[in-house]
């Protein structure tokens, strides 16, 4: 067995410091295994949120060596263990304790987005008929596990703290999923422009880079939404063309 040093942020409500833990590790371990090992041996009071250990629940989001990642999906052989490895809570949300943050703001944001509004059923039994080719696009966004790593890395939220104006990449792809759904009849374009402030996104693609589900958040979600907003509000020629069609 080899040993490595992990610097874990310890403290409450933003006040705290990195504490060094040197521990043994085995081949195949992930960062969450190490955190559990430390918690079970020398730091019984360390707070860490986790659930599935399979990259599907989105609970164990943290910043490992400064990068937003899931602890359960970060294998130790992906890290340089000759140097101390830092493990911190997400910076974008209010800190609770140690590695745990309060992500409830996200759930409040989701409530504000116009819900799925399906057209009338296609069949008398109240069901619809859709082609797989038409639901491929929204289904990509359904892979989201709501780990909120994209929200964490988005500089509009992380650095500029515009939480009360901008909904962030997670909810832009949620809106894209609804807007692109062939059954949906809702129109969220005005809200995207004025309330969700999609214009704050400057396409740096950080959200795409950290997504553990490898959703192409920017290229397939946010940019197509920006283009739909252009259709509606910034394209006079297109508007004229629509009038004569």
């Amino acid at each position: 067995m080899s040993t490595a040093t992990f610097q874990i942020w310890r403290g409450e409500r933003g006040n705290g410091k990195f504490v060094d833990y040197t521990t043994e590790y085995e081949t195949g371990m992930v960062v969450l295994d190490v955190v559990h090992k430390i918690q079970g041996s020398v730091a019984n009071d360390m707070a860490v949120r986790w659930n599935c250990k399979a990259g599907k629940c989105g609970s164990c989001s943290a910043e490992i060596n400064g990068k937003p990642r899931l602890m359960c999906m970060t294998r130790l052989n992906q890290l340089d263990l000759t140097q101390p490895v830092t493990i911190e809570p997400m910076k974008t949300f209010p800190h609770v304790k140690d590695l745990v943050t309060d992500v409830s703001w996200n759930y409040e944001v989701k409530k504000k987005i116009q819900k799925f509004t399906p057209r009338k059923p296609d069949a008398p039994d109240g069901t619809w008929r859709v082609q797989q080719a038409d639901v491929d696009r929204p289904q990509e966004f359904r892979k989201c596990i709501e780990c909120f790593l994209c929200q964490d890395v988005c500089h509009v939220l992380r650095d500029h703290r515009l939480h009360d104006e901008f909904i962030g990449p997670r909810f832009l792809i949620h809106t894209a999923q609804l807007e692109m759904n062939p059954l949906d009849t809702g129109n969220r374009l005005k809200a995207l422009k004025d309330d969700y402030n999609i214009g704050y996104c400057n396409i740096t693609k950080c959200c795409t880079k950290v997504c553990p589900e490898e959703i192409k958040i920017t290229d397939n979600g946010i940019i197509p939404l920006k283009e739909r907003v252009v259709d509606e509000f910034y394209d006079p020629l297109g508007g004229l063309f629509k009038m004569f069609r």
Partner: peptide
């Protein structure tokens, strides 16, 4: 979105330089 009241301004960790 202004009705969402959460203490996020400034953030728990402050803003990075």
């Amino acid at each position: 979105m202004s009705s969402i009241d959460v203490p996020l301004k400034g953030g728990s960790f402050g803003t990075a330089k």
